[in-house]
Design a protein around this nucleic acid. Structure first.
Length: 803
RNA sequence: GCGACCGUGGCGAAACGGCAGACGCACCAGCUUUAGGAGCUGGCGCCGCAAGGCGUGGAGGUUCGAAUCCUCCCGGUCGCACCA
């Protein structure tokens, strides 16, 4: 048994001193490979999830290094964010102090993993020389019309006392507080117009090597729908002659028997007739009081109110009532719908409840009762000149007709909404704008960046939904950069997802004072070749980053339009009880303890060995023991019985196995099948343990082992007489010819069931085998003399005799 | 409700449509006078003393041959959730 802690500490010190993991921007004859893991939030503790992300990722990085790439594998900290502020309020410590203290301790923990990180490129998103560029990017977007201030309904977390982006609302609750329902609040907000890139974000998915489910999630999130906007004439209100609706089913427009506006629709209140005014007002106010959760819970009964007004169906001329209901969202389409109860579930339910007419306009091919709407396509009925057309055809024809009458047009809508980035909190990058009475919104000039966070004492949110920054007079009061008169600063800070939307660019050139990163270095490294991190960021960080890169490309700052060429997700490690690890359940496994007990190498290797990487699964305290024993055996063989090296064996079974293993381990790592790579190493070593091996073969084995267990591999590498680091050596090559040597078993099947095995030399040609094996007499031996119907021969595998 | 993925020993899991259960854990037996979660050898899907039979959630199908492909059902995980 070897002393893992001692050996590991020793080698980490040596590696650090010699700088073997320092990355140069260019190395002659080597291709650059940008390998990235998602940078951690400095919560103060590296947990199993971090390890599971970073350890196997490091196996991959090391494999790539050895395979001849110049690998950049950087690390940093996503250091802005609410927990720092909450800790500040609770423990009377400044968020900066709290954050940097945590970074210091996490750095130690990260270093104990023995990863190839180039620490000279470390970035911290809360550092002024970083957030200067976050602010700069915000301003560039503002100049390009991609950032704007809007008064909108926003998701508000009562617990955070701050706005949330749509992507941060999970089942109507805050992503940080699953117990807290989000409410809707109307506030002035800075938004980034990610919707301008909806189509590109959708199309770009086709060309990137990402998990299919992640791409699908983004696709669904973007939620493209093709249809038509149709104008329904009304008697004039507020200079509006029409109510516009969006529909994906213009073919059913003859069946539109009423309209429904969202309670927030600009016309909702003004359309109310005198006798309906009170109930309409009541309904709208009520809708605003509800939480998002209450408004969208599916099992509740639909509610609504009649405005008293009518519109005309633009194709049939029928007079149809206009209703208001919260089953229509102001944020989607035009905030109003045409209701076709005969062919839509929701409209049907609503019409039944309020006794609205149901007109069938699609032939369902059956005599369907009125208890169920028919939502499929079909031939049109009761549809004037369009009767008889098929739905798909009718959609086009009717829209064309409406367009010719100026009553509608083709339209594409997306579910994705603009990204609200203002946060009413302290610990973030201040939004770099100034409000001037004369000049309005004025961006802070580039040479005045960064707008630094002032030192505060009180981090509690200011009543009325304002950032704690509003308390700092010296921060708020300033001069207008344009006209020099008195002005005030924006006090909201940026969502931390803005910080993380571009951090991967900064690693390429982390110290640059003039640019977020120099053009040449961006060219050297980006886009990221392999990105590894959790799937939970599918529609947040991973979507925002794509948007940022696309926007920066449009603005001419980048030469590529997708940030992450390839993406892989790790699964989630559960407690031994199969439940999510949590302090309250008491099933948390602390990686620091594992390092102390078994060493980082065993922990790294076991995380790879556990199972399918993207699957995750329950932790096993005894499972890691198996890996630790494996490493012990390796150490024992080479350190204690070190003199037993034999001459190299060139053509035997062992050479074949060694070659197979070289091939398999390499392929498996490339495909993220770390579990089978480890098992292949075990199979090989089980054999090596039983026979004397040559020094050369032992070295090959160590090279295969070293991405998984870098410390012990390095230790043995030196014990057996090497002077330079194993981590500077290249990945062993395999010899295709050696894979073919020796004999193999051929299975004899009868009607698909195994009957016998024969051994055949692999060198034999197919024809020779057929001569020997497939001749009638040989076969009759297996069939007890009867004539086979058919004989199937799969070279290298089997002979199946069909009787 | 919609969409995606997944169901293999006591457990984690392997298996180009071709010997199911590699590798490891746990367990059992033996060896080594062995006190550290040690080491070594062998066994270990289920039923059966055995020969043998049965086995990849269930029922069908395609195929000479199915854990793998197709259809339906059951169970689980994840995502979206009145998006017109």
């Amino acid at each position: 048994m070897y002393n893992a802690v001692k050996i590991e500490n020793k080698w980490r010190k040596i590696w650090e001193k010699s700088g073997i993991y320092r990355t140069k921007d260019k190395i002659k004859g080597k291709k650059n490979f940008y390998h990235l893991v998602m940078f951690p939030y400095p919560s103060g503790n590296l947990h199993m999830g971090h390890w599971y992300n970073y350890a196997p990722a490091d196996v991959y990085a090391r494999f790539k290094r050895m395979s001849g790439f110049n690998v950049l594998s950087p690390i940093g900290f996503d250091a802005f964010g609410l927990p720092a502020e909450n800790a500040a309020i609770k423990n009377k410590i400044h968020p900066r102090a709290w954050t940097y203290k945590n970074i210091a301790s996490m750095k130690k923990q990260l270093k104990s993993m023995g990863n190839v990180y180039d620490w000279s490129r470390e970035i911290i998103s809360a550092a002024p020389d970083y957030y200067k560029w976050t602010q700069w990017m915000f301003l560039k977007m503002y100049e390009a019309g991609l950032a704007e201030k809007k008064r909108t309904l926003a998701n508000w977390c009562p617990k955070d006392q701050a706005v949330l982006a749509n992507e941060q609302v999970i089942n109507g609750r805050c992503w940080r507080h699953p117990e807290t329902p989000v409410i809707q609040k109307e506030i002035e907000q800075w938004v980034l117009k990610i919707t301008d890139y909806a189509e590109e974000l959708l199309n770009g998915l086709e060309h990137i090597d990402w998990p299919a489910r992640t791409k699908l999630m983004q696709k669904n999130w973007i939620g493209k729908s093709e249809g038509a906007v149709i104008k329904f004439p009304i008697s004039q209100f507020l200079n509006k002659k029409y109510i516009e609706v969006f529909t994906t089913r213009p073919d059913t427009v003859y069946g539109a028997t009423y309209l429904v506006l969202s309670p927030e629709h600009p016309l909702a209140e003004s359309l109310a007739t005198n006798d309906q005014k009170e109930s309409v007002r009541h309904y709208i106010t009520n809708a605003h009081l509800k939480t998002e959760l209450e408004r969208t819970s599916l099992d509740r009964e639909k509610t609504g109110v009649f405005t008293g007004s009518y519109a005309a169906n633009p194709v049939s001329g029928a007079k149809i009532p206009v209703w208001i209901s919260d089953y229509v969202f102001v944020t989607y389409g035009t905030g109003a719908i045409m209701a076709v109860p005969a062919h839509d579930e929701r409209d049907f339910e609503f019409a039944k409840k309020f006794n609205l007419p149901v007109v069938k306009v699609i032939d369902s091919g059956r005599n369907w009762p009125d208890s169920k709407p028919y939502a499929e396509g079909g031939l049109l009925i009761n549809s004037g000149e369009f009767t008889g057309l098929e739905s798909a055809e009718a959609r086009k024809e009717i829209t064309k007709w409406l367009k010719s009458k100026n009553l509608g047009d083709f339209s594409v809508q997306y579910k994705m909404r603009d990204w609200i980035v203002s946060r009413q909190r302290y610990w973030g990058a201040p939004i770099p704008v100034v409000y001037c009475k004369k000049c309005g919104i004025v961006p802070v000039p580039e040479n005045k960046l960064p707008v630094r966070l002032p030192s505060l004492k009180n981090f509690k949110p200011v009543a009325g939904g304002k950032s704690p920054l509003a308390r700092s007079k010296s921060f708020v009061n300033t001069r207008c950069p344009k006209c020099k008169s008195k002005a005030v600063r924006e006090t909201d800070t940026l969502d931390t997802f803005v910080d993380s939307s571009w951090y991967f660019l900064r690693y390429a050139d982390p110290k640059n004072k003039k640019y977020f990163a120099g053009a040449e270095k961006l060219k050297d490294w980006l886009p990221v070749d392999m990105y590894i991190g959790g799937a939970e960021h599918a529609v947040m960080h991973l979507l925002y980053s794509r948007f940022f890169v696309k926007a920066l490309k449009t603005m001419g700052y980048l030469g590529f339009d997708e940030p992450f060429g390839a993406l892989r997700h790790q699964g989630i490690i559960l407690g031994e009880d199969g439940q999510k690890m949590s302090k309250s359940r008491g099933n948390v496994v602390n990686p620091d303890d594992l390092v102390k007990k078994y060493g980082a190498d065993a922990a790294r290797m076991y995380l790879g060995f556990m199972g399918e990487y993207s699957q995750g699964g329950p932790w096993s305290a005894t499972g890691i023991l198996g890996v630790k024993r494996f490493l012990d055996r390796i150490y024992n063989k080479f350190s204690i019985f070190n003199s037993q090296f034999s001459k190299a064996e060139k053509n035997g079974d062992f050479a074949k196995l060694l070659n197979q293993t070289v091939k398999k381990v390499g392929e498996d790592i490339e495909n993220f099948n770390f579990n089978t790579a480890v098992s292949a190493l075990m199979i090989l070593f089980n054999r090596m343990e039983k026979t004397p091996v040559s020094k050369n073969d032992a070295e090959t084995f160590l090279k295969l082992l070293c991405p998984f267990a870098p410390h012990i591999a390095e230790e043995i590498w030196h014990i057996i007489g090497n002077k330079k680091s194993i981590h500077l050596r290249s990945w062993p090559k395999f010899d295709l010819r050696l894979l073919e040597v020796g004999d193999y078993d051929l299975v004899i099947q009868i009607n698909g069931k195994m009957r016998d095995k024969i051994t055949v030399p692999k060198s034999l040609e197919r024809i020779e085998i057929e001569k020997i094996v497939l001749n009638r007499d040989a076969i009759k031996k297996f069939t007890a003399g009867s004539e086979p119907k058919k004989v199937i021969f799969v070279p290298g595998r089997l002979i199946n005799i069909v009787l």
